[in-house]
């Protein structure tokens, strides 16, 4: 775009961030407002620096949960950016996205959706259909649709995001597991338990493969252990309890690797419980507790 944030605005931004982090909004806000006034006077209301300053102040308002005020500022910043950078600029997409986030925070999902949609179109146009930033945008769009109960759209968006992450970043990228987890949540909301279960198992198998390189008789993902333990409890009379199954250190591995895996353990555990597979559920829940 050719636009660069002037050094003094950068400095001011850092200062504002520090004040905001300390909760000193009574200092941060007037500082921003004064700078905004100065910029408007010296550079004119439509200058890109004014848009940047509006963004900085919007962040402070956002941190104070003043979403309405923040959105007002971002709308002004949006008009400036559209007229100075063009309607299809990444900065316009980013501003649209953040506006959508602010609307979303206020539960205005219906208003947020078209903004998010436009941000998506810009990113597709500028970055191509398979860029990870497109997947990020799809993720936000899916979430907005989920809040409106538009599950068909949610599935479509998450599936696309998943394909992008898998294709561009590889199966081990944390975004893959995260998106699968989100998609599974969407399935659960619709009562599609089998589909959710498949995804949870995929996540756990992938986490296992990442740690041990393969799945074989000696290296099984945790859900296979859980189901075996379930089977054993059904076929054998438990006297003095089943000996504790050693998970091959798997839980240690998932401990550091990701909170998503932990969530997945608990979610699949809940699904097992729903099916009355209590031993299997306990196995996963225990693993989740250990790895927390």
């Amino acid at each position: 775009s050719g636009y660069e944030i002037p050094a003094r605005l950068r400095t001011l931004h850092n200062l504002v961030i520090q004040y905001a982090a300390q909760g000193r909004y009574e200092v941060a806000v007037p500082l921003c407002k004064q700078a905004l006034e100065d910029l408007e006077r010296t550079s004119g209301r439509g200058h890109p620096d004014v848009a940047t300053m509006l963004n900085i102040l919007a962040l402070v308002y956002r941190d104070q949960n003043k979403y309405k005020e923040a959105a007002h500022l971002l709308n002004d910043a949006l008009s400036i950016r559209e007229s100075t950078l063009g309607r299809d600029h990444p900065a316009v997409a980013a501003t649209l996205n953040n506006l959508a986030v602010l609307y979303g925070k206020r539960g205005k999902y219906k208003e947020a959706e078209p903004l998010c949609q436009r941000a998506l179109e810009i990113r597709e146009k500028v970055l191509g259909n398979d860029h990870p930033d497109v997947a990020k945008q799809l993720n936000n769009l899916a979430l907005l649709c989920q809040n409106q109960g538009k599950y068909e759209a949610v599935e479509r968006y998450y599936r696309r995001a998943l394909a992008i992450y898998e294709g561009q970043l590889g199966p081990d990228n944390p975004n893959v597991a995260r998106t699968k987890n989100n998609l599974a949540s969407c399935y659960l909301k619709q009562g599609k338990y089998a589909e959710a279960e498949t995804l949870y198992k995929e996540i756990l198998t992938q986490a296992h493969v990442q740690e041990f390189g393969s799945v074989d008789d000696n290296h099984k993902p945790i859900w296979m252990h859980a189901e075996e333990r379930e089977e054993m409890s059904k076929t054998q009379h438990r006297e003095g309890g089943t000996p504790y199954v050693e998970y091959g250190g798997w839980y240690k591995a998932c401990k550091v690797s990701s909170p998503t895996v932990n969530t997945t353990l608990r979610n699949l555990g809940a699904l097992y419980r729903r099916q009355g597979k209590l031993e299997a559920a306990e196995t996963l829940e225990e693993c989740a507790l250990r790895s927390r």
Binding site: S1, P90, A94, N97, K105, L188, N267, A270
Partner: peptide, 20 residues
Amino acid sequence: DRPPANKQQQLEWDDSTLSY
């Protein structure tokens, strides 16, 4: 029948708005 432990999903803010 406990509800599944779904993590609260959050809309993601784009921090790049300040780098243009």
